[in-house]
Design a protein around this nucleic acid. Structure first.
Length: 580
RNA sequence: GCGCCCGUAGCUCAACUGGAUAGAGCAUCUGACUACGGAUCAGAAGGUUUGAAGUUCGAAUCUUCACGGGCGCGCCA
């Protein structure tokens, strides 16, 4: 099974060879429906290379090109584009193939890789907040897509569970802790004592020094301090777990910074020995004298007091992922402010001989309505927990209003799927580099490119099947999706159904593209267009009321649309309800 | 001062490696309800892609310079 894009691409290559021309240009989805379904700019490129008129080259290519089994006669248009419009019969055949395929036509990667994805990375004793949404949701989606494409993915939560903040946490624990509050809401109490200690240390040098001493004792393995540290880590992790459960996020491993603690001295020793690092002003430092933009920005890997910092930890992490986990490639889904840091870490790793492919996948910020970084009224980060609660709450209100007769259990389930889906989709449907303005009204809107709109398309489909005559010979009741086709032959006549079927065949072309530049928003845009095509089909083409064999054919289209929507949303980490 | 990212319709956002007349949604205006869920669909209007110059068959996309916004620049992560 092969996508149209791939099939046509090969036919084009054959034609170029027959015409005695080199392979050139590319064959892509048409930029506009009025140009057909696919287009190639091969003639433009070749025309330029050979100093001939592109349109003449296009005619030469057409003379050697045979796609009559797939498409209408290709046409030359514009400056020399060759346009292809798929024949409805070919589309019907391809759609039927996809319907019979669990992977919906999506091919596995021809070169599967071991990929470690570092995303989320909350800090212990600090609450997860809006700032964690993008990394978590984006990383999770990329992991889902890479897994689906056949890569061997390790999802790693690089928890910030070690570092100078623990001096404060421990001092606060010993001097400020309220046991009752800790039992009631552990993370809130941890945050309280951390913040208060931090405040005090700013004004009171004695507190500052005491906290530093607690840190030294922790690092020296002091029993009491290690115990307090461990308790705070456990309590925080439990809190994170709750958020991950709500968000449906799963990690394969959670190697916090503390995991690498023992390995730090070695990292520095090796880099010193190999001459990559040197001593400067009492610290161990790596210079990048040959890279202009980094020439005056050395990386410190051991402070002059002998302590290590996060560059050291990240280098130990590189070693673990490359050597222990055998990663071919490592994706860091971490905010843009750390670009410089990772550039340096990757460069040091490269010099040290690590061959893995390192990628820093950055993203923009989430802004409030005032176009500044999203904060609460008092200027704090918005806690993730509050935000997710509100999402579900708001979804519940909408469900209550639109469909009050649903059972309580259904309402809870639906509000969860819509609310969380809306937050995730709003994030993923936008290009990751741009900052975006957070808006409840927009993300929960039933219209436009939103999760509820897509979920509604799915619900409409499910509704059709609830009403469909299950005894129809072409269908049987399946366990998972309710109804599965046992035999199908699609008949595509109406423009709306041809258009929908074409859209369905494109799923397999879009999904792999997402990983080119880590852009799940391309998949989101596709799903939106698919839902749109489905709604148009739904308006124009009666399904249950139509005569056989059209009825079965349209049911098959519905089934396939439902499955693509469900799978596509699943790749974004979003669930679909049966009703809403 | 140096570096990175961003600037697209009134608003919120698309446009994969440079492709054809820059697309959606909201808001505005017109239509379609005996509805397989109207939580929808069909249509209109809305643009000097911040500005200027350059590269070429062709630029929102690449280069340079401005302007505007955000974020980084040895011992916090």
């Amino acid at each position: 099974m092969e996508t149209f894009q791939s099939l046509l691409g090969r036919r084009l290559s054959d034609a170029l060879a027959k015409a005695g021309l080199p392979d050139a240009g590319e064959l892509t989805l048409a930029t506009d429906a009025r140009f057909g379904d696919y287009q190639t700019n091969a003639a433009l490129i070749l025309g330029k290379q050979r100093g001939e008129k592109p349109r003449d080259v296009a005619e030469t290519i057409l003379a050697h090109l045979d796609v009559s089994d797939l498409a209408e006669k290709p046409t030359v248009a514009g400056a020399g584009f060759i346009n292809f419009t798929m024949r409805p019969e070919a589309v019907a055949e391809r759609a039927a193939e996809i319907l019979a395929d669990d992977r919906l036509g999506v091919a596995r990667s021809t070169c599967p890789k071991k990929i470690v994805i570092d995303f989320g990375s909350p800090n212990v004793a600090k609450p997860m907040h809006v700032g964690h949404i993008r990394s978590t949701v984006l990383g999770d989606s990329l992991a889902r897509i890479a897994t689906f494409l056949g890569h061997d993915v390790v999802r790693d939560n690089h928890v910030g569970d070690w570092g100078t903040q623990f001096g404060m946490v421990i001092w606060g624990w010993k001097n400020l802790l309220d046991r009752e509050s800790l039992a009631r809401d552990p993370i809130a109490e941890l945050v309280r004592i951390y913040k208060e200690t931090n405040e005090r240390s700013k004004t009171d040098p004695a507190v500052r020094e005491a906290a530093r001493q607690e840190l030294v004792k922790l690092q020296a393995g002091d029993t009491e301090n290690v115990s307090i540290w461990k308790q705070s880590v456990d309590l925080s992790m439990q809190e994170f777990e709750r958020a991950y459960q709500v968000l449906d996020i799963h990690y394969d491993i959670q190697r916090g910074e503390s995991f690498y603690n023992d390995r730090l001295p070695d990292v520095v020793e090796r880099l010193l020995k190999s001459g990559i690092a040197e001593i400067s002003e009492g610290a161990v430092v790596v210079f990048f004298r040959d890279i202009p933009e980094l020439a005056d920005k050395p990386a410190i890997i051991r402070k002059k007091d002998g302590g290590f910092n996060y560059a050291t930890t990240d280098l130990a992490t590189v070693d673990y992922r490359a050597n222990d986990l055998k990663a071919d490639t490592i994706w860091y889904v971490v905010g843009a402010p750390q670009i410089l840091h990772f550039k340096e870490v990757f460069e040091i790793a490269r010099r040290a001989g690590y061959a893995a492919d390192f990628r820093h996948i950055t993203f923009g910020s989430i802004l409030g309505e005032n176009r500044k970084l999203m904060k609460t009224r008092s200027g704090e980060n918005v806690p993730l927990r509050d935000l997710l609660d509100e999402a579900v709450q708001r979804a519940r209100t909408i469900v209550e209003e639109k469909n009050p007769d649903l059972s309580e259990a259904d309402k809870i389930d639906i509000a969860q799927k819509i609310g969380i889906g809306a937050v995730k989709y709003y994030d993923l449907s936008q290009y990751r580099m741009t900052d975006y303005v957070f808006s409840w009204d927009r993300m929960l809107s039933l219209q436009g490119n939103t999760a509820p709109y897509l979920q509604n398309a799915y619900v409409r489909i499910r509704s059709i099947f609830r009403k469909a005559d299950v005894a129809t010979p072409l269908w049987e009741v399946g366990s998972e999706t309710g109804h599965r086709p046992v035999a199908t032959k699609l008949i595509l006549k109406e423009p709306a159904e041809i258009n929908l079927a074409k859209r369905l065949t494109q799923f397999a072309e879009i999904v792999p593209q997402v990983l080119n530049d880590f852009r799940p928003n391309m998949l989101a845009n596709y799903l939106f267009e698919l839902a749109n095509s489905f709604h148009a089909f739904y308006e124009a083409c009666p399904v249950l009321k139509s005569e056989e064999p059209t009825r079965s054919s349209r049911l098959a289209l519905c089934e396939l649309t439902g499955r693509v929507l469900q799978r596509g949303l699943d790749l974004l980490g979003i669930k679909v309800p049966e009703k809403m």
